[in-house]
Computed example of a mutant assay.
Amino acid sequence: MRTFEPEELDRIIEMAWEDRTTFEAIHHQFGLSEQEVIELMRQSMKASSFRMWRKRVSGRKTKHQATSSSTRFRAKCHK
């Protein structure tokens, strides 16, 4: 995984916490897979905060573009 500037790292974490931002949107903007986002979150947060985040996003339909009804960050070619 590449090294990110502090501003980029803050934005990735913010996007990962947002309910309507899909992992695909993070991948599109920063080139990180879902697993890489999980690893980044694990390394960047306290253990208790990471567990809370994982519980929150696990199984959440809106974190995956294929199961999300949100059109935020979707390009016309990805419908």
Rank of each mutant, 00 (worst) to 15 (best):
residue 6 P to R: 11
residue 25 A to Q: 10
residue 31 G to I: 09
residue 46 K to C: 00
residue 27 H to I: 00
residue 42 R to K: 11
residue 66 A to W: 11
residue 17 W to G: 01
residue 44 S to I: 04
residue 77 C to G: 10
residue 49 S to F: 02
residue 8 E to F: 01
residue 59 G to C: 06
residue 60 R to P: 00
residue 54 R to N: 01
residue 64 H to I: 11
residue 30 F to Y: 15
residue 65 Q to Y: 12
residue 72 R to A: 14
residue 72 R to P: 00
residue 73 F to A: 11
residue 28 H to R: 15
residue 48 S to K: 03
residue 51 R to L: 06
residue 14 E to F: 08
residue 44 S to C: 07
residue 68 S to I: 12
residue 52 M to K: 08
residue 26 I to M: 02
residue 16 A to S: 12
residue 30 F to L: 07
residue 45 M to W: 04
residue 27 H to P: 00
residue 2 R to Q: 05
residue 69 S to H: 12
residue 49 S to P: 00
residue 57 V to K: 09
residue 21 T to Y: 02
residue 37 V to T: 11
residue 7 E to F: 08
residue 46 K to F: 07
residue 7 E to C: 01
residue 66 A to G: 09
residue 52 M to D: 04
residue 59 G to Q: 06
residue 75 A to V: 10
residue 67 T to S: 15
residue 5 E to R: 10
residue 23 F to K: 02
residue 62 T to N: 11
residue 22 T to E: 10
residue 76 K to N: 13
residue 63 K to L: 06
residue 46 K to D: 07
residue 38 I to K: 07
residue 73 F to Q: 11
residue 31 G to H: 08
residue 55 K to P: 00
residue 38 I to S: 00
residue 60 R to M: 14
residue 2 R to L: 03
residue 58 S to K: 12
residue 68 S to M: 12
residue 59 G to A: 05
residue 66 A to H: 13
residue 32 L to D: 09
residue 77 C to V: 14
residue 42 R to Y: 03
residue 67 T to Y: 14
residue 16 A to M: 06
residue 39 E to Y: 01
residue 22 T to W: 04
residue 4 F to W: 12
residue 46 K to L: 08
residue 78 H to V: 13
residue 55 K to S: 08
residue 60 R to H: 12
residue 47 A to F: 06
residue 29 Q to N: 05
residue 4 F to Q: 05
residue 76 K to T: 12
residue 8 E to N: 09
residue 4 F to L: 14
residue 7 E to G: 00
residue 63 K to Q: 09
residue 61 K to H: 07
residue 79 K to S: 15
residue 7 E to L: 07
residue 8 E to Q: 15
residue 79 K to E: 15
residue 53 W to A: 02
residue 24 E to L: 07
residue 10 D to P: 00
residue 73 F to T: 13
residue 36 E to N: 05
residue 78 H to F: 14
residue 9 L to F: 01
residue 32 L to G: 08
residue 77 C to M: 13
residue 78 H to L: 14
residue 19 D to P: 01
residue 36 E to Q: 14
residue 68 S to A: 15
residue 18 E to D: 10
residue 2 R to F: 05
residue 66 A to K: 14
residue 1 M to K: 07
residue 3 T to Q: 11
residue 33 S to W: 02
residue 37 V to K: 06
residue 74 R to M: 15
residue 8 E to K: 04
residue 35 Q to T: 04
residue 28 H to D: 13
residue 72 R to K: 13
residue 39 E to W: 00
residue 34 E to F: 03
residue 41 M to C: 08
residue 15 M to I: 02
residue 61 K to M: 10
residue 1 M to L: 07
residue 54 R to Q: 03
residue 68 S to N: 12
residue 20 R to H: 10
residue 36 E to K: 09
residue 73 F to W: 15
residue 23 F to G: 11
residue 46 K to H: 08
residue 33 S to V: 02
residue 11 R to G: 00
residue 50 F to M: 01
residue 5 E to I: 01
residue 1 M to I: 05
residue 74 R to A: 12
residue 8 E to M: 06
residue 33 S to P: 03
residue 7 E to S: 11
